[in-house]
């Protein structure tokens, strides 16, 4: 069943992709093929492959229980927040928070998580910024 849905989504993407390809503005200076042809070929094969997946599905993958799924969703949200807050908070603070969260969700104790988070962040900062000289996001405190 999962595969049928997957195939249907793939087919939808293929149609969307093909439609978007037809919307591409042609330049007056175009080569013999133009910017549309190759995307349309891709969309066609994508559609065929999706169709094949839909018609001949593999056995269902084992989906995680709802709890685990929320776990992953929460991690995604944390990572997106990290991406946004990195320039605001500075590398060390943001990384300490994010890695403390991740290690906590992977089974470290609360206090341990804080310590691991801070150590990870300072460790990466030391290796990559102080030793290797990579420029990392600066926050209000300059690190």
């Amino acid at each position: 069943m999962s595969d049928r849905i997957f195939g249907a989504v793939g087919l939808f993407i293929a149609i969307l992709f093909a439609w978007s390809a037809t919307q591409i503005q042609e330049s007056f200076l175009s080569d013999a093929v133009g910017p549309k042809a190759f995307p349309i070929i891709i969309a066609t094969i994508l559609g065929l492959a999706s169709g094949a997946i839909m018609l001949r599905p593999d056995p269902n993958p084992t989906w995680p229980a709802l709890g685990r799924l929320t776990e992953i969703l929460a991690a995604i949200v944390v990572m997106l927040l990290y991406a946004q807050l990195l320039p605001e908070l500075g590398f060390v603070t943001a990384t300490a928070l994010a890695s403390a969260y991740l290690t906590w969700r992977l089974g470290s104790g609360p206090l341990q998580s804080v310590i691991i988070g801070i150590c990870t962040s300072i460790g990466i900062y030391t290796v990559f910024h102080l030793v290797l000289g990579l420029s990392l996001a600066r926050g209000p405190f300059g690190f």
Partner: peptide, 24 residues
């Protein structure tokens, strides 16, 4: 244990990509 390793992997990935473009 992976509970320590995996956050490090994630964070190093972010560092690498941010280092190239500096864009969120």
């Amino acid at each position: 244990p992976p509970r320590i390793l995996m956050p490090v992997v994630a964070m190093v990935s972010f560092v690498g990509i941010y280092g190239i473009s500096g864009s969120s």
